[in-house]
Design a binder for these strands. Structure first.
Length: 402
DNA sequence: AATACGGGGAA
DNA sequence: TTCCCAGTATT
């Protein structure tokens, strides 16, 4: 039995004693964030979705613009998914945006007034809202208690209660412990926010500032003196103070290094660019990328044999862009192409153009592009060569899929 | 229980 | 470089 186990049962009083100092600290030091100035469930909902796996600093750049564009759940429900995706461009995890849009349609319940979920369970039935987000929205918007367990609260609570990481039943214990903060609690919403704030500001993963922590004197990990050293092999790791990699801590080995995928993107020597939406179920679904295909590379003079640009000829290599995803890299060779002899008409009137979108560089500003496509567009616009800055000559089918 | 999902910031 | 982040859904 680890030192923590026999004490956990007596921990009901621990949170009660820590609560006042925690809230006092929060009142004194909490950051002024836009979603903390409201009790509007919609505003809090949007913030919680954006904040999934995304830092406050990044979300701040998106949140206000999103709320201006879609001030109410009805506005969001009515909006085109393309505009929602455009507003999300660069935030990542685009499934969040699609789920948010779909869930808005459910809540807005047009016609008629919105039907707001009245409990954690009801929130959790909406797509994109799991137990933790449901708890956060509910507790913050109604100031009634519900536990949460995001990365911050997980770390704070794990340390506070001395729950070893990488052990069986860890998750259940963490949820139970997190729920303990709701005991006899006059300010449920602020408590959850304070716990998240504590994890974000002081109770950091690698170097917690225990000296400044308002609840350090009640903290199980402090009592054990474990905040000063890393977990060593053979003993349960207390909450991650820089866990060593490997199996010693019960964690999975780190994944193999990122591979590099190669691709070509094709830019017509004259006329607009061709964008294609990424297919259903694929990474970055629905976002537009500059037309092309996977390839180790093409050389000037070669005739393209694949896809829509089949029968076009490579004129020159313009430049390359690279992009890093979580699990791989992508290297994209951007090639200038012209229709091969006799293909000029077919090239424009191609069958696939119906489901693909042509857009000038300037028009592409309004489209939801992948990170790679955005880099290509930016680079093309910065080119001084006037031949590269093409404009529409013979307007092809209207931009689509955007 | 493991894995996919993106991107940016920080150490 | 590597790690981390106000997680969820799927398998």
């Amino acid at each position: 039995m680890s030192p923590s186990d026999d004490r956990l049962s007596s921990d009901t009083g621990r949170t009660r004693k820590a609560l006042a100092p925690l809230l006092a600290w929060y009142d004194r030091t909490s950051r002024d964030l836009p979603w903390r100035r409201t009790r509007d469930p919609y505003a809090i909902w949007v913030s919680e979705i954006m904040l999934q796996q995304t830092t406050v600093k990044t979300v701040l750049r998106y949140y206000e613009r999103f709320m201006e564009r879609f001030p109410t759940v009805e506005d969001l429900a009515r909006a085109e998914l393309a505009l929602v995706l455009k507003s999300w461009e660069g935030l990542g995890y685009y499934q969040r945006a699609r789920n948010l849009h779909r869930a808005a349609g459910i809540v807005a319940h047009d016609p008629g007034p919105p039907r707001w979920p009245q409990s954690v369970e009801e929130w959790q039935r909406l797509p994109g809202i799991g137990r933790s987000t449901a708890g956060a929205i509910h507790s913050i918007s109604t100031d009634r208690w519900a536990p949460i367990l995001d990365a911050n609260v997980r770390r704070v609570t794990g340390r506070f209660f001395g729950i070893p990481s990488g052990t069986k039943g860890e998750l259940n214990r963490l949820w139970e412990a997190s729920d303990g903060w709701g005991e006899d609690n006059p300010r449920p919403g602020d408590t959850n926010q304070a716990l998240m704030e504590l994890g974000a500001v002081l109770c950091l993963p690698a170097s917690p500032a225990c000296g400044e922590c308002p609840v350090a004197s009640f903290c199980q990990t402090i009592e054990c003196g474990r905040e000063e050293r890393v977990a060593s092999p053979g003993e349960p790791a207390f909450f991650p103070l820089q866990e060593p990699l490997g199996r010693s801590s019960g964690r999975r080995m780190k994944k193999s290094p990122a591979s590099t995928r190669k691709r070509v993107a094709l830019v017509p020597a004259s006329g607009p660019l061709l964008f294609e939406p990424r297919g259903e179920g694929r990474l970055l679904e629905g976002l537009l990328e500059v037309a092309g295909f996977p390839s180790a590379g093409l050389s000037p003079g070669e005739t393209v044999a694949e896809g829509f640009f089949s029968g076009w000829r490579v004129v020159e290599e313009l430049f390359s862009v690279r992009h890093v995803y979580s699990h791989f890299r992508e290297e994209v060779q951007v090639l200038r192409v012209i229709p091969a002899e006799g293909k000029e008409r077919e090239a424009i009137a191609g069958e696939k153009s119906i489901t693909e979108g042509w857009a000038t560089l300037s028009a592409s500003e309004g489209l939801a592009l992948t990170g790679v496509a955005r880099k290509i567009v930016r680079k093309l616009r910065s080119q001084e060569d006037p031949d590269v800055l093409t404009e529409i000559r013979d307007p092809p089918p209207a931009p689509e899929g955007a």
